[in-house]
Each structure stands twice: as C-alpha cells, then as structure tokens.
Amino acid sequence: MTMTRVKICGLTREQDIDAAVASGADSVGFVFYEPSPRAVSIEQARKLVARVPAFVTVTGLFVNPEIEFVKAVLEAVPLDLLQFHGDETAAFCASFGRRWIKAIRVRESGQIEQAFAVYSKASGLLVDAWDPDRYGGTGQSFNWQLIPEKRPLPLILAGGLSSDNVARAIENVRPWAVDVSGGVELSKGKKDATKLSEFFKEVHRVCKID
C-alpha cells in the first residue's frame, strides 16, 4: 500500500514540534482561530515554526477569517500551506497566492462529491466530522462509507483518529493523508510523545510495502 502521509495539527509547544517531527510527521498544523483551545498567536506560531526542519510542511488553519488577518499571519509566519476550515468560498481560499486545502464537515451523502467540484483548485480536500457548534477538533469520527471512490483531489481524512483506529481507517478509506490532533494529546493543545509514536507505528504497520 502507498505510504499515507500524516499531519499533526493543533501544535502549541516546542517539545511537541520536536516529538511530531521525530515521529515522522509530513506536516505540522497551527490553529489561527481564537475560539479553539489549540489556538496560537502570530508570535507563538513564529517561534514554533522556527523549529520545523526542511521537508516538513507548515500548515496554517483558519476558520472564516478576515482577509487582513490571513495576510498578517503570512507576513510574520512562513506558512507553506493554508487550510480553510469554515465556510470560505473557493475564490477566497485561492486569493492569497499560496497552496491551500479545504476542510468540510461531512454529514450527508453527496457532500464530498460536491466539494470536490466547488473546490477543484485546492491542493487537497480534508473530510472531518460534522458538529453544529465546532469547526473541527471534535474528536468524533463520521461514516467513512460517505467517502466516494472517485477522488479528483488528494483526500485527507480527519475526525476522531487515534492509534486505535488509524490502521482500520487507512485500510478502509485509503486516504492520501490522515490528520490527527486530539487523538495524540495529553490535554487540548498538549501532545503526548508516546501517543504520537504509537500513532505512527500503526500508520507504518498498515502502509508497509511488501
């Protein structure tokens, strides 16, 4: 099976950056959304990103942001990829001259196919669990059978993943990448090095190429 890439999201501490990178993270994510318990300030993010080595993608997560706020982050923090997790239009997502992915909260059949069409210029589509009050970080999974076989864009699976279910998720969904936050935490915003190690062990186990 092709190697599934891994993004560790919601990083807030230097030691967690180090642990995620040491475990083999392909991408690290920083949340620029104040209501989130995993939110970081621009200054915090700038310091944290300085610890990220070459070839690890730095992703900035936004939820229905003002244009000026995204620009302010980009001026101060060297982001490689933008992740929009709210109700942003495709035109808005594409307006910053950076690669971007769009997250959608899945609750019904046909929703993912529609998103593939609407956000066709994205670098990937992230599918997460639906919650009427929260944009991601719910710790809940969703019905993976709603994910279509035909995928015009790379599909990133999020929502309630942990070392307990990531192998099954990869076998069933065969996503381009998985995105985890709460499933590798001690508490919200604080990652656990052991849980990170166990998560990657499961990913590598199921993706082992014969």
Rank of each mutant, 00 (worst) to 15 (best):
A158R: 03
K191S: 07
F199R: 01
S197Y: 07
K150D: 10
Q145V: 10
I170T: 02
L153W: 05
E198W: 14
V173S: 05
A177D: 09
D179G: 00
L155M: 14
F199P: 01
G137K: 00
D164P: 03
K191G: 06
S141K: 13
D192G: 09
L155Q: 10
L161W: 08
S162H: 05
N172C: 11
S197N: 10
L146K: 10
N143C: 12
P175L: 06
W176V: 07
G137Y: 00
E171H: 08
R151Y: 04
L146Q: 14
A167V: 04
N172H: 12
F199Y: 04
I156K: 07
S187C: 05
K195Y: 09
G159C: 03
E149S: 12
K150V: 14
V166C: 02
K188W: 05
P148Y: 05
L153E: 06
L186C: 11
D164A: 13
F200Q: 02
W144A: 05
A158I: 07
K195H: 10
R151P: 04
E198R: 15
V173R: 06
S141Q: 15
G183W: 01
Q140H: 14
W144E: 09
P154F: 10
F200V: 04
L146I: 12
E185R: 07
L146D: 06
G160A: 08
D164S: 10
V184L: 01
F200P: 00
L186A: 13
T138V: 12
S197L: 11
S181L: 06
A169L: 02
S163N: 14
S141F: 09
V166F: 01
S162F: 01
S187A: 11
A158Y: 01
G137C: 06
S163P: 14
Q145D: 15
L186V: 14
I156P: 03
S181M: 01
S181H: 00
I170F: 00
P148I: 05
K150G: 04
A177V: 05
I156G: 08
L196T: 02
L161T: 15
G182M: 01
R174W: 06
G189D: 07
Q145M: 08
R151I: 08
G183Y: 00
S187F: 08
F200G: 06
